[in-house]
Design a protein around this nucleic acid. Structure first.
Lengths: 202, 202
DNA sequence: CTCCAAACGCAAATAATTTGCTTTTAGCGC
DNA sequence: GCGCTAAAAGCAAATTATTTGCGTTTGGAG
């Protein structure tokens, strides 16, 4: 649970980063994304543009940085009494948040950035949330699909439809959750059909 | 099957568009994406930058335009004798192409552009290819999953892993195809678990 | 053939990005 | 606590990209 990559929280560097992030969020809320520029953000943050250029390189990297931070889950998944209900509730909320205009923009910002670090962090956020639900289910002795099966069968379709087609509604998310559970309830095994996969959670 | 959105093929407008596209592809092949700029493309295409700015607005739009065109399938899915084999072969090739460096870049370019038209076109390309396979299977009297089920269970995980995590190998793609067929072979019904969805292909 | 509107070229004006150099500041050994 | 050092920030000039107004070309319609 490292705070940020800066040297020390409280130092000037951290202060600048926080200020730039805050300014970016403020501008993003106030105006269209296409009109947000680095000089604008710099002015809003009370910082010179070259500072931002040197630190982030280009606008896309900064937007991705801000988006990843906003995408970090801030709550524990709600408890409904059963693993399936937990997953359904979480997935429905996830789909709704990601389908919103701002959610879609954040995902695209994360994907547009140069490296693969941002997308992976988002993936690991989802993994962590699902892991919490899975752990609770296991503690109750319930069957629960493998985390990667949930990623493939629930998260992947949700994001795919948002990015490439049209966002799914709650009912269709329910179908995905049912599909994820179908395999577990059929065989005694985990939900995954094919070969092994690493099980790290980020 | 419209050719392009231009007025007429052969007109000046179409010639310019073709030249710009060609120049973009050439530069993309020759140098890093981060170094490709509109003035550079204009020079390579023998066109003034303002033409590109007025037509595409920004680099991202042009890159997306070029990427969508490159993503358009240029072959009919190979026939293996059965729908399942057809789907497996097609999905494996699709996963491999999309996992490559250039494939990943094209997907990201398409997603980064402003409107939703690019991503939708890519989605409909996949739909069309799957529809071809499904039609062949139907002609043979075989059971075959609903196209949307294939999108959710095969395409979505493939793209999700490429974009957010780590690309799947052929073996794992096989697992996805098996999953898509599991529901069809279980019930007599289509592969989809939940409510209705539009069935347009394009 | 002539006209019209859309698309292009050109060049000036504006805005963004890069860069060299100076100044500030956090972390560290004394 | 006190200076030292290196990383990060500020500043301003230089470069590069983007926008824009206006004249010219061109494809299509009457």
């Amino acid at each position: 649970m490292a705070d940020r990559e800066g040297p020390r929280p409280g130092g000037r560097s951290a202060r600048v980063q926080a200020s730039v992030h805050r300014a970016t969020r403020a501008l993003l809320a106030r105006m269209d994304r296409a009109e947000v520029t680095i000089p604008l953000i710099a002015q809003e943050a009370g910082v010179t543009p070259s500072t931002i250029y040197r630190r982030w390189g280009e606008l896309g990297e900064l937007l991705a940085d801000v988006a990843v931070e906003r995408l970090r889950p801030d709550m524990v998944p709600v408890e409904t009494g059963g693993g399936r209900g937990d997953l359904l509730a979480w997935a429905e909320q996830y789909a709704e948040e990601m389908s919103s205009g701002i959610g879609r923009e954040m995902i695209r910002d994360v994907l547009a950035a140069e490296g693969a670090a941002g997308p992976r962090r988002c993936c690991s956020y989802a993994r962590q949330q699902i892991a919490v639900i899975a752990r609770r289910a296991a503690a109750r002795g319930e069957a629960f699909p493998d985390i990667d099966a949930v990623l493939d069968r629930v998260i992947a379709p949700i994001l795919f439809r948002i990015l490439f087609d049209e966002a799914l509604g709650p009912e269709q998310v329910g179908g995905l959750v049912a599909c994820a559970f179908a395999a577990v309830e059929r065989g005694g095994a985990r939900g995954r059909v094919s070969g092994s996969r690493r099980t790290d959670a980020g």
